[in-house]
């Protein structure tokens, strides 16, 4: 039960996490790895389609890098994407503040 609620809570954070992480260009698997190490649960089969969707919305730009051992698609957060990330981050803090306030009010 905890797992289901936890997943639900984290779900919306994947977009913000991706936009923030990709301010430095990155490719699909690399981002997956980075998110996992940061503790953001984002399954590959959700993350890869999400990247394409964000690209479609103009929040990410992409470029194929063929210089490595195999071609990789590098994503980078666009200017719109950065703007959205900042806005979402403010929301995130507002959520935290609201929860903290509710918690202390109850606790006292």
């Amino acid at each position: 039960m905890l797992d289901a609620h936890r997943q639900e809570l984290w779900r919306g954070s994947v977009v913000l996490a991706s936009l923030l992480a990709l301010q430095k260009p990155g490719y699909g698997y690399g981002l997956l790895d980075a998110l996992e190490r940061a503790g953001v649960p984002a399954p590959a089969n959700t993350l890869y389609p999400l990247l394409r969707r964000l690209e479609g919305q103009g929040l990410l730009t992409s470029e194929w890098d063929t210089s490595g051992s195999r071609p990789r698609k590098f994503y980078r957060t666009s200017r719109d994407g950065v703007r959205l990330a900042r806005a979402l981050q403010r929301e995130w803090r507002a959520i935290d503040a609201a929860l903290t306030q509710l918690d202390t009010e109850e606790g006292e």
């Binding site: 698997y29 690399g30 790895d33 590959a44 890869y48 394409r52």
Partner: peptide
């Protein structure tokens, strides 16, 4: 329209995972 692009990207991601 998106088929080739998705195929290419998916292959690359799978190869990355396998390599790791």
């Amino acid at each position: 329209r998106h088929r080739q692009e998705i195929e290419r990207e998916l292959r690359s991601s799978i190869a990355d995972d396998v390599e790791a």
